[in-house]
Computed example of a mutant assay.
Amino acid sequence: MDPPIPVPDVPGDDAGARGLPRRVDLTWRQRLIVDSSAAADLALRTGIASMIGASMLPTIVGAALGSHSRAERDHLRFYGELAGEKDPRLSFPAPTVTPRISSRPANPVAEWIAKGQVHNIRFNSSFEAVNPALREQCRAYQRNNVVHAQHWRHDDGPHPTLCLIHGFMGSAYLFNGLFFSLPWFYRSGYDVLLLTLPFHGRRAERFSPFSGYGYFAHGFAGFAEAMAQAVHDFRSLVDYLEYTGVDRIALTGMSLGGYTAALLACVDDRLQAVIPNVPVVTPDRTAEEWFPANQVMRLRNLLARTDDELSGAATMYSSPLNYAPLVPKDRRLIITGLGDRLAPPEQAEMLWKHWDRCAFHWFPGNHVLHVSQPDYLRRMTRFMRPFMLG
């Protein structure tokens, strides 16, 4: 399990009964890695926050003209009331249509990396916006409403399947396959499925300036519906896997994918295991630290005359902290980086407490530089083996 980017071999550890270690509890090498990687993460965070801030400019203009202010407040109330029910069946209705899958062989590079059979699959999303006021708008996203995924399958029939959901702007199959050492999991006996999130990669609408632009370009309601569609589309893929004979499915995801994975653990009881990696669980709190996107958000809220209480209640709609997990405690594993400043480790610790202090592993790196990554990949392997390959 050699990661594609050589990193220092400074191992992390499982969290203790009190949670993540204090800085004084780390070795000098771990402190050095945490501090230096945190500084590097701040620069990356500023760059990504600038892109997110730019994607929110259309909603700023709408709020300034007064054309979206009342609608935005109505949307916030809708999601806040729905979140108040704390019922995932209401918030994220299950798909009622079995997807008709179109499959074709992936490029030779993908099969060379996997050392096996790889297919790119696609199907039309059956998602309907949860908010009735947005259904016509969401139906108009033609490219986004075609779901894309990549499936690594063995020749001898369906195997237990490890599913991966990528992070914000990081949808490339090749990158994710190498970063998470998916060929190693494939050779260990897993089939692998990589989902492309809404508005990413080939699902990005025409003239989108970057992959993932649509997540933040349509205000808070657009983000909420993008999360709802991510959940819906993944559940359609689970329907497809079950139809092909797969009976054991584990899910992991990084960053935005970790957030989505944690939410899915509260929505779909068919998952055998869930492993959120550097997840965010309260995006509103995290965004408050993301300059300059935080300033753009404050301006938008000021122009739209929305208050913090209303926004906070609506944000809980897609937060895994708002729902009880359906995956058993012994099948939940959270991974975080102590130097992460895009998805601070405090976010993962909040999820850990909500999930009854389940298995929790940390590494001394940041959001992208996963120092001693083979260490936590082995931790994932030991964690999943009893109920996936046993």
Rank of each mutant, 00 (worst) to 15 (best):
Ser91Ile: 01
Val109Trp: 14
Ala71Tyr: 07
Pro105Thr: 08
Gly116Asn: 01
Ser67Gly: 07
Ala83Phe: 01
Asn124Phe: 07
Phe127Tyr: 14
Gly116Met: 06
Val97Ser: 07
Thr96Gln: 15
Phe123Val: 01
Leu65Trp: 09
Phe92Arg: 04
Ala106Thr: 05
Ser69Met: 03
Ala64Phe: 10
Thr98Arg: 14
Tyr79Lys: 00
Arg100Ser: 11
Leu65Phe: 12
Arg122Asp: 06
Glu72Val: 13
Glu85Gln: 15
His75Arg: 15
Gly80Thr: 05
Ile113Met: 10
Val118Leu: 06
Val130Pro: 04
Arg77Ser: 10
Lys86Asn: 11
Ala64Tyr: 13
Ser103Pro: 01
Ser102Phe: 04
Pro99Thr: 04
Asp87Lys: 04
Gly84Leu: 05
Gly116Tyr: 02
Glu136Pro: 03
Ser91Ala: 13
Ala63His: 13
Ser102Ile: 04
Thr59Val: 11
Pro132Asn: 05
Phe123Glu: 02
Asn124Pro: 10
Trp112Tyr: 14
Val61Ile: 15
Val118Gly: 07
Ala133Leu: 11
Leu134His: 10
Ala133Asp: 14
Val109Thr: 12
Asp74Tyr: 03
Thr98Met: 14
Arg104Lys: 12
Pro95His: 06
Ala106Glu: 08
Asp74Met: 09
His119Asp: 14
Ser69Phe: 01
Pro93His: 03
Val109Gly: 13
Glu111Thr: 13
Val97Trp: 08
Ala71Phe: 09
Ser126His: 04
Arg104Met: 12
Glu81Asp: 14
Phe123Asn: 07
Leu82Val: 00
Asn131Ala: 11
Gly84Ser: 11
Pro105Glu: 10
Leu76Asn: 02
Lys115Pro: 00
Ser125Thr: 08
Asn131Leu: 03
Pro93Met: 00
Glu128Gly: 06
Arg104Phe: 09
Ser102Asn: 09
Val118Gln: 06
Val97Asn: 05
Ile101Tyr: 07
Val109Cys: 12
Ala114Arg: 10
Ile113Arg: 08
Gly62Ser: 14
Pro105Tyr: 03
His75Gln: 09
Val61Pro: 03
Leu65Met: 15
Val118Lys: 00
His68Ser: 15
Thr59Phe: 03
Phe92Met: 04
